[in-house]
Design a protein around this nucleic acid. Structure first.
Length: 291
DNA sequence: ACGAGCGCCTGTCGGC
DNA sequence: TGCCGACAGGCGCTCG
């Protein structure tokens, strides 16, 4: 993978980062390890739940949710695709941040922020808050995480996910490449930003039919997916007082949100098009559509 | 099987 | 300046 780090340029004013796999992974790491002036949540016990927007709770019904979660302690934090999973002493608390969600650990004397949808009080002066401006985020409380995650495709960063496996997966569909990569049932974790970035690194057009890719192209795509996701984790993890807003990766976009700006490989202006009803950013020269 | 269209939401931005 | 419509996007759903 040839990347020219020094040539990357800052992405204008947009400070709004969508939570995809790397952002969830970083939140997970912070929740487990804590950070400066913020404790780990491992071992904490939930003594009270406050639900400020009922539709945030996907399941069970609100009263049942409150009864169930009280007195449960947090044993571990995991990630599957874009889901954040808190293993409790009884059951699993699962968050999906969708567009604007965030998980905040703070002292209980802080003011309640305007977009908090769920607050879990730990009874020790600390609390967890689910902040979600656009109310798309969802929280599940279930016995087993598989009840929520069973339809997800493979994890792109595990060793079992090979180039050959991706080749076979792509061959078994006849779909536009980008919407397929973003389909969480196909592959877990890619959203709009990292998909655009991966396709640019792999020099593939988002509209190529999945079953038309040859082995060399699939190998490039496989490598690019893993590269941009790893890079995202690395960048966000490198930032000190990080949540995911204000993380560093937005300063390293190759194509996302760079319409009109020069391609970092060839200088051609980046184009914005719509693929599967989503804003899509490509270099028309590096990512030419065959035929 | 595939993909378009829509609803869910709210902050932001362009046009008048 | 101020109002208003368009837009952004993850995901589940319906429909052709």
């Amino acid at each position: 993978m040839h990347t020219r780090v020094a040539a990357w340029v800052s992405c204008s004013t947009n400070n709004w980062i969508m939570p995809e796999l790397p952002e969830i992974e970083t939140i997970r790491n912070v929740l487990i390890r804590g950070k400066e002036k913020q404790p780990s949540i491992i071992g904490k016990t939930i003594v009270r739940a406050e639900i400020l927007w009922e539709r945030t709770i996907a399941t069970p019904p609100v009263e049942e949710f409150k009864d169930w979660i009280v007195e449960r302690s947090i044993l571990n934090v995991r990630r599957r695709g874009k889901y954040l999973i808190l293993d409790l002493s009884d059951g699993c608390l699962i968050f999906h941040l969708r567009m604007s969600g965030d998980v905040v650990i703070e002292k209980v004397d802080q003011e309640i922020a305007p977009h908090y949808r769920l607050i879990l009080d730990f009874g020790d002066g600390w609390r967890l808050a689910f902040d979600d401006t656009r109310k798309f985020g969802r929280v599940w409380l279930v016995e087993n995480m598989v009840e929520v995650t069973h339809k997800l495709g493979p994890e792109p960063l595990i060793p079992e996910f090979t180039s050959l496996m991706l080749y076979q997966m792509l061959k078994s569909h006849h779909r536009q490449l980008k919407p397929l990569l973003m389909d969480q049932h196909f592959l877990a974790g890619l959203g709009n930003i990292y998909t655009d970035e991966a396709l640019h690194v792999a020099r593939l057009h988002p509209l190529i039919r999945s079953d038309r890719l040859n082995e060399a192209q699939v190998k490039r795509l496989w490598s690019a997916i893993r590269h941009v996701l790893s890079e995202g984790i690395e960048k966000n993890g490198a930032s000190i007082d990080w949540v995911y807003k204000g993380g560093e990766f937005q300063n390293y976009f190759r194509v996302y949100h760079r319409a009109g700006k020069p391609c970092l490989n060839c200088g051609t202006p980046i184009e914005r098009l719509v693929v599967g009803q989503r804003g899509t950013h490509i270099c028309p020269k590096c990512q030419a559509l065959p035929d």
